[in-house]
Design a protein around this nucleic acid. Sequence first.
DNA 1: TGTTAGCACTCGATACAAGTGAGTGCTAAT
DNA 2: ATTAGCACTCACTTGTATCGAGTGCTAACA
Lengths: 348, 348
Amino acid sequence: MDLSERKLRILQAIVGDFIRSAEPIGSRTLSKKYDMGISPATIRNEMSDLEEMGFLTHPHTSAGRVPSDKAYRLYVNNLMKQYELPEEEKKIIAEKLTKNVTELEKTIQHAASLLSELTNLTSFAITPNQEVNQLKYINFLPVDERTVVLMIVTESGKVSNTAIKLSNPYSEEHLSLLSKVMTYNYKGKTLSDILTLDIIKNFESDIESMGKLMETIRPNFINTLENMLNVELFMDGLTNIFSIPEYNDIEKAKVFLEMIHQKKHFTDVLINRDNGMIITIGNENKEDYMRDCSLITATYHINGKLVGKLGVIGPTRMKYDEVTSIIQYITDNISQTFKLTGGDKEDE
Amino acid sequence: MDLSERKLRILQAIVGDFIRSAEPIGSRTLSKKYDMGISPATIRNEMSDLEEMGFLTHPHTSAGRVPSDKAYRLYVNNLMKQYELPEEEKKIIAEKLTKNVTELEKTIQHAASLLSELTNLTSFAITPNQEVNQLKYINFLPVDERTVVLMIVTESGKVSNTAIKLSNPYSEEHLSLLSKVMTYNYKGKTLSDILTLDIIKNFESDIESMGKLMETIRPNFINTLENMLNVELFMDGLTNIFSIPEYNDIEKAKVFLEMIHQKKHFTDVLINRDNGMIITIGNENKEDYMRDCSLITATYHINGKLVGKLGVIGPTRMKYDEVTSIIQYITDNISQTFKLTGGDKEDE
DNA sequence: TGTTAGCACTCGATACAAGTGAGTGCTAAT
DNA sequence: ATTAGCACTCACTTGTATCGAGTGCTAACA
């Protein structure tokens, strides 16, 4: 069944009003406030139809109407107007994200905090999944007689290191040889390949004379690689939910915060979402504890290859137009910033 | 005015009961529950005295008595019995904190999460202040033609690095020379000395021929040092406050969470506390937004030198005996773990 | 003189009844 | 097809009565 022009207009007014006020809206108020040239009675009839179609609900008989998830979906897909960010906000975003970009992690963290500030919602961001990141360089460095530092550098410019305590002294030649052999063996392979394809197990036989040294180093090497693969989650604006009427209930707020604080689980949810700007509204979310939240995520790109995500989570009643615009602008900025400087593609 | 033996016994019973139940307790209930051989009326008289002395308060005329901050202080100082941790918990703590100690940060984070788990409170931990940490080693490592990695190693075994993009290619000899000169200059100096005593500014003149290289490197070097000095704050059990009756009020919970989330500010508060086991109760806290919380902190030691802190924050009504024991046991364990393995003192 | 029983009083909490008002759904007139 | 009119619904507010845990005071007691 198709929606008439007038029904759409009414629905748009209801959704728009409810997003702002969080109060159920009645026919009389709607007609007065939005001056749509029809009487409350007519609006009531239309509302009744819309309710039957599943776009509106009724907290109780004598209350106004409230949009359903389905209504939000329609609003997001068809009714919502393009929201243009104020120049001022654009400037703030650009400034914060392009200045002082020493570390990707720091920038992503800034992006999350910026996002929560601008939207007044709870924001999050994850660092790129490093699985396709290729190893470039392995180096063992002497520190003192029984300590070496293992340094791993990837094609995208990520650097990671660990100090390793050895039970016996080592020789510098061995160490330097080891750096060369391992670099030779693993250069160009992706981090996950190195870990999963059992390549690591074989490298012992390559340099038989150093069995003992290898034994200590291997678990550290694996550990470091695993750490590099770990996706990091940043969040901000956690207390923003308290200013949202929907979460004035202590029990609801608790559930929300507990859900958010299960970082591992939440990271998984984010990783498994499709790329691009994805909006899931209320019961569209697979996870049932999120069925009265909306989740918006978008992707940013590092070097055109690695993909990270960021977004917001909040009540289904949120300013979708504003929020999506802000997220889009932020991800665009990050991708732009890390287009060239993130890796070794500077000369291309 | 001195407190009679009997007054102390009554006070102890009230504090103990209130810590468990969070309900004001009346004379009749107290006499029945604790079987102290005196009638409710007598207890009432004693209570009245205790109230006059400032140890008890009265939410309203017809309610039971509630301990004041002063009462908690007396309880903590004199009445509280030594609480012995169950062997089981000791085992859990020892296991978690001594296994897999690759990084100090990770261990401290584990300690915080353990602490909140065992106390059901909000826990926190900060990494040691690195100001007295001495520099041991500086190394510049070639990555590709325009990228080098700066690696800084301290006496306590902390390793930090940054990738630096250069605008011009560099020569490997220069790099290696730079490593040697800088190590020679800064070895044994504390990190804060290197930063604050303007030593950095002078090092340009040391190696005149490499002015250009230095120009790019210096800000990165300073930046890295500053990062190393930064104290990191970990927190856990944030949602635990929701199970505490005192914070069933949404407004209170909000204030609490917002206070906690101002990481910078909260870190400063922690840093400025004295060493050792410090308990501040309610209005003993200088920060007025913490005047109905109790804060307990204790210190752990790395290598006998560097000092970090951890503790809990919660309502003044908390199980001080249990909590302090747990914190003590955890800090002892950390200090033990990092007594020898944290630095190069292995052979002493 | 310290302790205790008795009793009037306080006050938050709970329950219930009546009144209010925003909003609906239906019907009949336009 | 639209609208005015009207009875009805129901959350919310206000007012009143009741309950009970607990206090403070007084007088009696050991």
